[in-house]
Design a protein around this nucleic acid. Structure first.
Lengths: 225, 225
DNA sequence: CTCTCATCTTGACGTTGACAAGTTAGAAAC
DNA sequence: GTTTCTAACTTGTCAACGTCAAGATGAGAG
């Protein structure tokens, strides 16, 4: 299968909203997939439903993504790109240096809560094509933002290109945030559908992460990002 | 398809333990399901394959479990029962009171690593039937063991029947352990297939959890279990 | 021995992912 | 401006799946 991605759209002026016959179908399918995941969850996801929503035949997706795994991997990549943005925004909005890591962690949890199905896909490695370059790059970048922030707050140096985490403190923080996000998304911490519930869980996340950081922060001084 | 293709004739040897009509099919199907999950993962799981392995027709499972969700829920229940046992065993084998929570957490991680697909199912709430009594009871019991241990080590009192966790410290510990387990199972912490790799990750888990506990332990004294 | 009914089988239906072959239309070549 | 090329998309097909309905079977009760 070829998964060629033509950037310059075939169509000079894709009409509003939908790119029909020769539009940017790849993007439209990713968008449709996100919608399906949001509405029906991972177990309600089908390639054919995505094609239906994009207004194309059931076999059209294969041309762009190969198979279902290919499309889901693209969705995961978009998810990591969004997660990266959310973390950066949160970091930039936080005035106190000592709270940067907390803010980033809460953004991580917030992303998971607002995009639960996508978050689930992003970390379900059995479903994904790990040879997809966009996916790998997006994942690395999201993790890089976390490492950057950790380095800045704790004033230590971390190799951003290390294949696996070796520092127990770094992993502890990640596992904590990821665990909270996972439990919250899976409904283990109570309902998480309404905006109020999500806000409550974000607040809880802040408390838990702050509680965890209190005892382990002051090691070195911090450096600017 | 008139060809009779029974491999073991209808009932070769009425095993004791249960009155084998065509066997203790429910148990056989759960076992088959675990095997399928182990070999092919969650995305390779099918009801028909389970039936095939149990040596029954494709529609037989429906009689015992209703649908695929019913069978998966039973598998999850068995998983929680196993997790409970693993936690208790680890606790009983740990001589130092202050290390009980650590040992329990490492057992949690160890269970996840040795039963990755089952662990995944157990927490994939969208797949499960939360009205299944066995499942709900098993989940509560597993969590109860954790709460018990936490209470004993930290010398505080926790309501074991509370619907949701409200103490940030209790949740922090759970999220940390669960996050580590989740990341490890999904391969985010490196390969986790061989026995050596699993042992390595368990050791890493101990270090990370110990590192986390160091700063937050001495609050009250501990009580006996 | 006969009856009975939970258990299991057979067969069918609609849906899915994937593949193969055919069609279409934009753009490049002439 | 016509032809040609080719990626993009469609149509058709297949085996496998989950589920349902109806039929078969056999173990235990009477």
């Amino acid at each position: 299968m070829k998964a060629k991605k033509k950037k310059p759209a075939r169509r000079p002026a894709p009409q509003r909203g939908k790119a029909y016959h020769h539009g940017d179908l790849a993007a439209a399918l990713i968008e449709a997939a996100e919608a399906v995941l949001t509405e029906r969850g991972l177990e309600g996801f089908t390639l054919r439903e995505c094609a239906r929503r994009a207004g194309v035949s059931h076999a059209a997706p294969a041309h762009h993504f190969g198979d279902a795994r290919g499309l889901l991997t693209e969705v995961a990549a978009v998810g990591f790109e969004r997660l990266t943005e959310a973390q950066i925004r949160a970091r930039e909005a936080e005035p106190k240096l000592q709270n940067l890591l907390l803010a980033t962690g809460v953004a991580y949890v917030g992303f998971a809560l607002t995009h639960p199905a996508q978050f689930q896909v992003m970390f379900q490695s059995g479903l994904l094509d790990h040879s997809n370059q966009r996916f790998v790059a997006a994942g690395r970048r999201a993790f890089g933002v976390y490492l950057e922030t950790y380095s800045a707050v704790h004033g230590i140096r971390i190799d951003p290109d290390a294949e696996k985490v070796s520092d127990p403190s770094v992993l502890r923080q990640w596992a904590l945030v990821h665990g909270f996000a996972t439990l919250a998304v899976q409904g283990q911490l109570g309902p998480n559908h309404s905006a109020a519930e999500i806000a409550g869980l974000r607040g809880f996340a802040w408390i838990v992460l702050e509680n965890a950081q209190k005892h382990s922060l002051p090691r070195g001084s911090a450096s600017k990002l």
